[in-house]
């Protein structure tokens, strides 16, 4: 493999991973932008989405299912489930303590995350033939391979571009464009930006703040649902602890881009995806250190540039 080919390969892997992280990061950054809460349970909502996706695919025939049936089926069910889940979390765990100090809500979010991790473990232990990966509830479950590993660039090419890479881009990019349009051009999007800027003023202007916050959680949850389907299809393996890892990647991305900033989250996610791809595909022994690098990056950004790369967030509530 020549250097150019290696660079292209790392770019493909990195960008595909980055786009998935971006979908999760958008949920983090939208929620933080509106209520200044690190929604710790967000990654685990995505994890539960993966388990629902596996259950649906398994019940519909597993490996034999055509991707043309599976994809619409999954994208019509899983995002609704995760959106509803995220919305209920807000209503049950965050709304009652919205007036309390910020750390109270963060601890509550960690609690929700723990409950979801446990539910994920139970889900993996259901006595269904769907769950490959052994009888143990805690083991990783393999997701049916619906796309195969054929190379779209021809079998001779050293660079591997699989249908799953294309699927990631084809799903995430239109979604992000749609979200940008929604936030910038629609009435509800304007209301969301108003609440993010100043909830009290927004309320005085007649905006139903509770509804806007609920909608934010619904959109974030739906994006996490799409991310869960893509992740399950892309990596081919799901595990009840995956939410934490993916969530931390996404949160790092959101912070890196400037939390509360939507384009920033996508940019940060692409960077994290590339960093991971380089660590795992180029640096010798880099795979075992890639988490360390991501967390070190998170700490460095928080300490030295807490407003992120794009740094639009200047507001500081005293």
């Amino acid at each position: 493999m020549t250097t150019t080919e290696l660079i292209i390969q790392l770019l493909i892997t990195g960008l595909a991973n980055g786009l998935i992280i971006a979908l999760i990061a958008l949920g983090y950054t939208m929620v933080y932008g509106i209520i200044e809460l690190i929604n710790f349970a967000h990654g685990d909502v995505m994890m539960l989405g993966c388990f629902l996706a596996l259950t649906i695919v398994g019940l519909c025939g597993g490996e034999q299912l055509s991707p043309w049936i599976a994809l619409p089926l999954l994208f019509l069910t899983v995002p609704f489930f995760t959106a509803g889940l995220n919305w209920s979390v807000e209503k049950l765990a965050y709304k009652p303590i919205r007036e309390a100090p910020k750390l109270t809500a963060l601890v509550s979010a960690i609690g929700v995350s723990f409950v979801f991790i446990n539910i994920g473990m139970f889900w993996g232990g259901l006595p269904m033939d769907v769950f490959g990966g052994g009888g143990s509830a805690a083991s990783a479950k393999s997701f049916p391979d619906l796309f195969g590993w054929s190379n779209l660039l021809g079998e001779q090419s050293a660079v591997l571009l699989t249908p799953r890479d294309v699927m990631v881009a084809a799903v995430t990019i239109p979604l992000m464009i749609g979200l940008t349009f929604f936030i910038n051009r629609t009435r509800m999007g304007t209301a969301m930006r108003a609440v993010a800027q100043n909830p009290t003023a927004a309320k005085l202007m007649g905006i139903d703040v509770d509804r806007v916050i609920g909608l934010t959680f619904i959109i974030g949850g739906a994006l996490a649902g799409v991310a869960s389907v893509i992740t399950a299809l892309y990596t081919g393996s799901i595990h009840f602890q995956m939410g934490y890892r993916n969530g931390m990647d996404a949160f790092t991305a959101a912070v890196l881009g400037g939390i509360g900033n939507l384009p920033g989250a996508v940019l940060g996610a692409l960077l994290i995806g590339l960093v991971r791809a380089v660590m795992e595909g180029y640096v010798p022994n880099g795979g075992q250190w890639s988490n360390t690098v991501v967390f070190a990056l998170l700490i460095l950004v928080l300490v030295f540039r807490p407003n992120g790369i794009l740094g639009s967030r200047v507001r500081e509530k005293v």
């Binding site: 765990a93 303590i97 609690g111 723990f114 446990n118 539910i119 509830a137």
Partner: peptide, 17 residues
């Protein structure tokens, strides 16, 4: 013993609330 995370999580949520 599989209920550990559930119990710790619920303890956190309920205590905070």
């Amino acid at each position: 013993s599989n209920w550990k995370f559930m119990i710790f999580g619920l303890a956190l949520i309920l205590m905070m609330r």
